[in-house]
């Protein structure tokens, strides 16, 4: 996982070429990088800097400013627990603690088997279902701490 050197896919390269001349392209390109690899790998950042002709420092400046971009690979299943206001009021902090307890990792860390990572996010826009957690885009709403183990199992079974 960590030692792996990523190489630029032809699709990504084509995307960068397409956006190269558009003003203000950097964030859109970084979104595509993250979509491709699940994070912003250093070697890809270097290559992107060359292709777009921007300093690498600018890329890191942008990546570290925005919460959405990550410099480390997430787990195969990334658990995003909502700590927006609606979820907080209905016990979102207990849900995240339960995930941490069940998985044995803290926020923004990945389990040793690379299967799960836990992330705290602020409002996923389904506050009506508070408290909410999203696993790889799948919404789990009206959570109670007792549901957490079952959700983890459900993904663990998928491997």
């Amino acid at each position: 996982m960590s030692g792996k050197v990523e190489t630029m896919t032809p699709e990504l390269k084509a995307f960068i070429e397409e956006w190269k001349t558009k003003p203000g392209n950097l964030i859109m390109v970084l979104h595509r990088v993250q979509q491709t690899y699940g994070y912003i790998p250093r070697e890809i950042a270097i290559e992107t800097a060359e292709l777009l002709d921007v300093p690498l420092a600018k890329i890191y400046g942008v990546v570290t400013f925005y919460n959405f971009f990550r410099l480390q690979k997430a787990g195969k299943y990334n658990v995003q627990v909502c700590l927006g206001t609606a979820c907080y009021l209905r016990g979102g902090d207990d849900i995240i603690k339960e995930f941490e307890k069940e998985l044995g990792v803290g926020v923004n860390t990945t389990t040793p088997d690379g299967l799960f990572s836990v992330e705290a996010v602020r409002c996923l826009g389904c506050c009506g279902l508070a408290p909410v957690a999203v696993v790889n885009g799948e919404v789990h709403g009206k959570l109670e701490t007792k549901n957490v183990a079952g959700i983890i199992d459900q993904y663990r079974k998928l491997g």
Partner: peptide
């Protein structure tokens, strides 16, 4: 379209 990136 331009995407935000999680900065309030």
């Amino acid at each position: 379209l331009r995407f935000g990136a999680g900065a309030f």
